[in-house]
């Protein structure tokens, strides 16, 4: 803020006038901001902390001995998951269909988003709205018909079935986000490429896609996110071979009650891929929203 005012000499030096900006630069405001953010982040972190702590406790301790920090630290729950194939294959299955879905969504959404961004054509607004309605259709409506459709094609319990089903909401979302990014690229770039003798496919792959790489990154983040967290369709379309971790987790109730420690450990492990993805795209998240159709 202060460097900006220095470069614009017409503005009076704000020595005694209070700053009004997003970042409150005067001390008092700054502190209140920090306190508010800290309280909010603590509110977000407490449930996650409790999940992790529970995963590090023995079941006996969870049920009988209430403590904020484990009395006896144990990795037993994690050992159970990593040695039992029905558990760890769940993570592999989830990762497989999430990656498939992300790739399919982006490959199909790129040309569509380009068309919506660059051209006007018969029924373009209606087509865009139609895509949009699919983002709004409740998965609960589709669970049963999906099961029948994919049964008819013999696709039940395959990774591709879940990946295709998740296209229902991820493909419209990908078109929506990418359209915003593509509209941010000046049209002159396309025209210059044609004058330079590029064919359309070559221009698209060699020049255009690298230019909107950050947009593709943000889109991949959202596709990953919504596919990774979805349970209803993934559970309906799989039985054993492609069963995702989220569905495996719903079956921890046994005759001895709920195995809370195991459940907490499995839950903790589902957070890690998401946390990694956020870390890699952290600089683009806010930008992606700002550039996107928002």
């Amino acid at each position: 803020m202060s460097t900006d005012t220095a470069t614009t000499p017409a503005v009076a030096k704000p020595a005694d006038t209070p700053h009004v900006s997003l970042a409150h630069t005067d001390e008092k405001r700054n502190w209140s901001s920090i306190i508010i953010l800290t309280v909010y982040i603590i509110f977000l972190m407490v449930p996650i902390y409790w999940l992790i702590v529970t995963s590090l406790k023995d079941n006996l301790e969870i049920m009988t001995n209430f403590s904020i920090v484990p009395n006896e630290w144990t990795l037993k729950n994690y050992r159970n998951i990593f040695t039992d194939e029905s558990w760890y294959s769940g993570y592999i299955n989830s990762a497989l269909y999430v990656v498939m879905n992300t790739v399919i969504s982006i490959v199909l959404a790129l040309p569509a988003a380009y068309a919506f961004s660059r051209y006007r054509f018969l029924g373009d607004k209606h087509a865009f709205f139609w895509f949009f309605t699919n983002r709004m259709s409740p998965p609960a409506v589709f669970a049963l018909p999906f099961f029948q459709l994919y049964s008819a094609f013999g696709l039940i319990d395959t990774h591709i079935a879940v990946a295709l089903a998740h296209c229902l909401f991820n493909l419209p979302l990908a078109i929506w986000i990418l359209e915003g990014f593509i509209s941010g690229v000046p049209k002159e770039i396309d025209e210059t490429a044609y004058i330079d003798g590029y064919s359309f496919p070559k221009f698209f792959v060699k020049i255009f896609v690298p230019m909107i790489a950050s947009g593709i990154g943000v889109t991949a983040f959202f596709c990953f996110m919504f596919s990774w967290v979805e349970l209803l369709l993934a559970r309906t379309l799989t039985t054993t071979a492609a069963k995702p971790i989220v569905a495996t987790m719903t079956r921890t109730v046994s005759s001895t009650g709920v195995d809370w420690g195991l459940l907490a450990a499995a839950g903790t492990l589902t957070i890690i891929p998401g946390a990694l993805v956020i870390w890699f795209v952290r600089n683009y998240i806010a930008k992606g929203f700002a550039l996107g159709r928002v």
Binding site: I41, I48, V246, G267
Partner: peptide
Amino acid sequence: CLVLMALPLLIPWNVVGTI
């Protein structure tokens, strides 16, 4: 802030219920 705040968004929905 962004990383910590985005964390709940990427937790599978049934895990949110479990939490």
